[in-house]
Design a protein around this nucleic acid. Structure first.
Lengths: 196, 196
DNA sequence: CAGTCAATGATAACAGTGTCAACATAACTC
DNA sequence: GAGTTATGTTGACACTGTTATCATTGACTG
């Protein structure tokens, strides 16, 4: 009855919004570059380009939705990895390796996430969701930090870890360095949390 | 006489190629996103869009040329920073801070560099120049590595350093974390080259 | 159950893009 | 000075995101 539920699917033709997001997601997963075209997407959906405008105000909104979905997946993925891997250096290394692996397996999606989410006006576009998703990501990365650190130290260490794995992932995605899990592990382990 | 010299300027109207690159560079330096439009650029140059096709086979080639120029500047910048900063941890930190600072000051250019150069077919598009420029960059970053390392250790350490500063720069450019030089230094110093 | 209306979709059009073919003009060469 | 080559322009094509307008369909109301 109340149509304000976020997930109420069946409209009169199909559930275009969901279909569009799903199709867009598949496209992103099977592509290298996140060059999703609104018209091309609509074409693949067997629908007219302008039909998408009934569900998204513009292309950016569509991409934002996809980026949010991707960020949610990445955040959950990292949180799970952090939960499974124990603490200590090994756990930290494993979480980092997981991040890079996910990035390599979802290049276009990772690019979309960082290209869009940071620019989103959090005041107007579902701030809690965006904040939550990125919080999950940061928490997953920071979960393996040593406990005996001060708050500032933990913040710096988390930023160090995030920068390290993200930068490594970007270098790999940009073709600057080949993907080698062993090398990733070695590079990630070269971090000294007692310093700083 | 011999027109095979790479730098022979005066053509019959002006030196469009150089003007285009210069204008494009200015555009990139004053913008956040590297969304250079071929037609828009030509318009600003007071020239017809297709005129640029006498100097570049297509838009990608133009962007590649700009990316190469940017990479050369970045490489020189890093090499200079590495030469000025002494060795040791302080020198290393200074080179890293310099990288991030340059990125913050040239966001569109840095994005263009990494978006394009990695995808360039090095076999067909001036391989030596591309290789040289990136070699300069890597050398600048790796110059402050401890000497007593093995070759593999040095490679891993250089990749670690590069990933770290590049990732941090990207997070800042994407608006994920605010730019704070002190924080950058702190984060960069959290690297332990004796590990791994 | 009939009728109204809002939600959803399609068409046509506009401005903008990168790119090509054809044409024009200036510069350089002999 | 004539001819060839290099450079620049115009017009067009396919494509894109977007809007205005029209069509249809489902859902709710009486």
């Amino acid at each position: 009855m109340a149509p304000d539920s976020p997930v109420n699917a069946p409209y009169h033709h199909g559930d275009l919004r969901a279909s569009a997001l799903q199709m867009g997601m598949e496209r992103l997963e099977s592509q290298e570059q996140p060059d999703l075209g609104l018209r091309a997407l609509a074409r693949d959906l067997g629908v007219s380009a302008t039909a998408l405008y009934r569900h998204f105000p513009n292309k950016d909104a569509l991409l934002d939705a996809l980026a949010l979905e991707g960020l949610t997946r990445l955040g959950a993925h990292q949180a799970a990895a952090a939960a499974q891997a124990g603490g200590g250096r090994d756990g930290f290394a494993e979480v980092g390796v997981t991040y890079v692996k996910w990035a390599v397996e979802n290049p276009a999606l990772l690019r979309l996430i960082y290209n869009r989410v940071g620019q989103v006006d959090l005041a107007t576009d579902d701030p809690s969701a965006m904040g939550e998703a990125f919080y999950q990501l940061r928490a997953g990365i920071a979960a393996t930090m040593p406990d005996e650190m001060s708050r500032d130290q933990r913040a710096a260490a988390a930023l160090h870890a995030w920068s390290l794995v993200h930068g490594l992932a970007m270098l790999i995605l940009d073709g600057q360095v080949a993907y080698d899990p062993a090398m990733v592990r070695k590079v990630v382990l070269m971090t000294d949390f007692s310093a700083g």
